[in-house]
């Protein structure tokens, strides 16, 4: 047992353009909401870690401005990952396991609307073989989708089913960005975007922020807080060279899930699949059965805040467990092109 409890999660509405709201104004409400929901004061939190990308704001150390939302006086212990905030949670998880801290606040934020996100993401690629060509994130995902279709790992109809399920689930999620139901016929009639992908196969570009609080199970019990128990987390990476990977499989996600404690009683999975074929790929790679409820929040296809969407998968699954919807759940976060990096969290009801 890890003795780590998720006691609170807050998410701002995911929107295409947050307008003139700056990052601090996006972060502060979710931090306040997450702390108020669990009754912990700022001074009770041992450690704070955030996830964001300075490339979205186009300024080095732009993330430091986010600390203004915390109220960093008296001085706090704080850290940042230039990754999805799921990895900020992972840093806190490791510090909890090491006994360094007993509680943590994690937040992730992204305001992608001012730039061209698919092109900005080309800056994360190998700087010699890939980045000079500026391949955007949708094109790289489309190469993976073609490989899936060619290999018979999925069909066009199955990709449509993923989109239909996302929209159906998102209708229960008031913070989702895309909630309009679609039919198989509508999706079949849609024109190609970057073939074989259509726009509906791609996650929307979203502005937003999320926050999550963890503490020891004993503290949660003392305070009478309902919580979701973190059974385990693990992170695995594949080659940064796309041409040296099997794009139709995800051994890194499979290994991470196994190490995090994947078991046969999982009832629901929040999969961070920004493209429809990736949800199918992850289900296959993780060996999830037909009975597993996929993306009850709507998933990344219903809203994908850069650097918060992975944390949202974990927070959404914890919230579903706290509501009593499930006893055992899996949450997955990804980073990099074509599911290069994968982080899997196994959760259970306390």
């Amino acid at each position: 047992m890890t003795d780590i409890a998720i006691v609170s999660y807050a998410q701002a509405p995911m929107v295409r353009d947050a307008g003139c709201a700056n990052e601090v104004e996006l972060i502060m409400p979710v931090i306040n909401e997450a702390l108020q929901a669990c009754g912990l004061a700022r001074t009770d939190i041992d450690f704070v870690c955030s996830g964001s990308a300075d490339y979205l704001q186009g300024a080095p150390f732009a993330f430091v401005a986010g600390v203004d939302a915390l109220g960093a006086f008296p001085p706090i212990k704080e850290s940042h990952v230039e990754m999805d905030a799921a990895w900020a949670l992972y840093e806190c998880y490791l510090k909890m396991l090491a006994g360094d801290i007993d509680s943590a606040l994690i937040y992730g934020f992204g305001k992608s609307s001012p730039g061209n996100l698919p092109e900005v993401l080309s800056l994360q690629l190998d700087p010699y073989y890939l980045q000079p060509l500026c391949p955007d994130s949708v094109s790289l995902a489309a190469l993976q989708a073609r490989a899936m279709l060619d290999a018979g790992r999925c069909t066009r109809e199955q990709m449509n089913e993923v989109v239909i399920n996302s929209r159906r689930q998102a209708q229960k999620n008031p913070r989702a960005q895309l909630r309009k139901p679609v039919s198989q016929e509508q999706l079949q009639a849609e024109v190609d975007w970057i073939a074989p992908l259509k726009k509906s196969d791609c996650c929307p570009i979203s502005d937003g922020a999320s926050a999550l609080v963890i503490c020891r199970e004993s503290q949660a019990r003392e305070m009478g807080l309902p919580y979701a128990r973190v059974v385990g987390m693990d992170h695995r990476i594949e080659s940064h060279m796309l041409g040296f990977r099997d794009l139709t499989d995800s051994p890194s996600a499979r290994n991470a899930a196994k190490s995090a404690g994947l078991h046969n009683n999982i009832e629901a999975a929040e999969l961070h699949a920004p493209f429809s074929h990736q949800e199918i790929l992850l289900r296959q790679s993780l060996g999830l059965s037909e009975n597993v409820d996929i993306n009850p929040s709507g998933g990344a296809l219903a809203g994908n805040v850069m650097m918060a969407a992975g944390l949202d998968r974990i927070g959404s699954m914890a919230a579903a467990i706290l509501r009593g919807d499930y006893k055992f759940g899996l949450a997955h976060a990804t980073s990099g092109p074509c599911l290069q990096q994968n982080l899997v969290t196994i959760l259970e009801a306390a």
Binding site: Q144, I194, G243, L247
Partner: peptide, 26 residues
């Protein structure tokens, strides 16, 4: 060609300035 996708509206940063395919070549 091991895999490919078709870019019908190339951006200004794309290697070609008319519709083209991204390809993985062995």
């Amino acid at each position: 060609v091991l895999s490919w996708c078709w870019v019908s509206q190339p951006s200004s940063s794309a290697p070609l300035n008319k519709p083209f395919a991204w390809v993985l070549v062995r």
